[in-house]
Simulated assay, not measured.
Amino acid sequence: MTESTNQTQPPTTTKPLTIGVFDSGFGGLTVLRALLPLIPNAHYIYLGDTARLPYGSKSRETIARYAVSSAKFLHEQGADLLVIACNTATALALEDIQQALPIPVIGVVQPGAHAALAASTQPTPDAPHHVLVLATAATVQSHAYTHALNALGLEACEKACPLLVPLVEEGWTNHPVTDDVLKIYLTEALASAPATQTLLLGCTHYPLIEPAIHRTLASINHPLTIIDSAAATARATAALVTEHFPNPATIDHPTTTFYATDSIEKFQRLGSNFLGQPVTEVNLVDLGG
């Protein structure tokens, strides 16, 4: 599975570029946060499918159905390009989404893998570069990052960290409990992969605890280069925009419309933390079962 864009190339338009960003919940807002300064002359539509999360506990067929319906909704709202800011949907449904839409689609796995390659020493068959991937259980079970990294000549060790997402959503991004949990996860992972040189954040919640990860690595005396897949995805999206939309109309500043399928108040509260600015208006949308 690759994350190459669809073959259909949209025509250059004089209207402002509209970028759709999709996640099963809130984590994709870290991708949007990284996109806003990189592509300021755009309108953004963000959809959090909060009524049907967590995706990770569902079958591949169900995840694909949910993700395709969400992607189609964003296309119907005018998205010219779609960013799948969800690791589970990228890992298990990217090809389904690409086949369902006539616009460019990009996920989060390949940009993260390529960023890890760019940060690595030149890998060789005799001396491959080792990358530790922290992710949710569903993403680890898909082995999407292992496949992507191996294809680039990198060795991967994936570590499922199921406690980190609820800790982030609880707001405990700078809390001793989070530090303790990170120390356990990282110590276990590095014991099985001591040659690791790079740490890839394979969940879009994890950029919020990057300072805690740095502290933990320092405490166990194992510094690593940290790759934020959300930031890598934003850079890859900016390159995609340059390729497909060379002359979009300009606007004074980026604008954003937010949609959620449930829990508007929670989306506003948590979303503001993830986005780094107030999320004041969220539209409720029903995408069915």
Rank of each mutant, 00 (worst) to 15 (best):
Ile39His: 09
Pro40Val: 08
Asn41Glu: 15
Asn41Ala: 15
Asn41Cys: 14
Ala42His: 11
His43Cys: 12
Tyr44Trp: 11
Ile45Trp: 06
Tyr46Glu: 13
Arg52Leu: 00
Pro54Glu: 05
Tyr55Lys: 08
Lys58Ser: 07
Glu61Trp: 02
Ile63Ser: 08
Ile63Lys: 04
Ala67Tyr: 04
Ala67Pro: 07
Val68Lys: 05
Val68Thr: 12
Ser69Gln: 15
Ser69Thr: 15
Ser70Cys: 15
Ser70Phe: 01
Ala71Asn: 11
Lys72Asp: 11
Leu74Phe: 09
Leu81Ala: 10
Val83Lys: 12
Ile84Thr: 14
Ile84Tyr: 09
Ala85Cys: 11
Ala85Trp: 10
Ala85Ser: 13
Asn87Lys: 06
Ala89Gly: 12
Ala89Ile: 05
Ala89Pro: 08
Thr90Ala: 14
Leu92Ser: 14
Leu92Pro: 06
Leu94Arg: 08
Gln98Pro: 02
Gln98His: 05
Gln99His: 13
Gln99Asp: 14
Leu101Arg: 07
Leu101Asn: 08
Pro102Phe: 02
Val105Phe: 03
Gly107Tyr: 05
Val109Leu: 06
Gln110Phe: 03
Pro111Gly: 10
Ala116Arg: 06
Ala118Tyr: 02
Ala118Arg: 12
Ala119Gly: 06
Ser120His: 03
Pro123Cys: 05
Asp126Glu: 14
Asp126Trp: 07
Val131Gln: 04
Ala137Gln: 00
Ala138Ile: 01
Ala138Glu: 02
Thr139Asn: 03
Ser142Gln: 00
His143Ile: 00
Ala144His: 03
His147Ser: 11
Ala148Thr: 07
Ala148Tyr: 06
Leu149Cys: 08
Leu149Ala: 08
Gly153Pro: 04
Leu154Met: 06
Leu154Gly: 06
Glu155Arg: 15
Cys157Met: 12
Cys157Ser: 14
Lys159Ala: 13
